[in-house]
């Protein structure tokens, strides 16, 4: 039986992960809308259809089409910057 509490070394990076809080969902779409294709097969087909529906139902909203270079890696910094600078909201297609 143990008579004292054992001490272990922390195997983690010891930093609480940064909370990834998404921006508040806008009440309505009234600004530039980004549609991001993550570059998976047939993602463009899906994004085309989304764009068609947006233009049909929200003709006043500007649509900006964006595309990741590859689905296998996180979006590069310049693409993230572009989203932040140009888009009020984004729709991202996540699968094939």
């Amino acid at each position: 039986m143990r008579n004292e509490s054992p001490v272990i070394l922390d195997p983690t990076d010891e930093r609480a992960p940064m909370g990834r809080q998404p921006a508040a969902r806008p009440a309505r779409l009234d600004g530039p809308l980004g549609i991001i294709d993550i570059a998976k097969a047939r993602g463009d087909v899906f994004c085309d259809e989304v764009e068609r529906l947006v233009r049909e139902r929200l003709p006043s909203v500007d649509v900006i089409r964006l595309r990741k270079p590859t689905y296998t890696k996180p979006a590069p910094g310049d693409l993230r910057d572009e989203v932040g600078a140009r888009c009020r909201a984004v729709i991202q297609a996540l699968a094939d």
């Binding site: 004292e4 272990i8 070394l9």
Partner: peptide
């Protein structure tokens, strides 16, 4: 340099580590 984690005296170390998701 790692942070020390004291396992509560009444806890089984193996169960404690599992409970921490390690």
């Amino acid at each position: 340099g790692a942070r020390r984690v004291r396992i509560p005296v009444d806890d089984d170390p193996f169960e404690f580590m599992a409970s921490q998701g390690l």
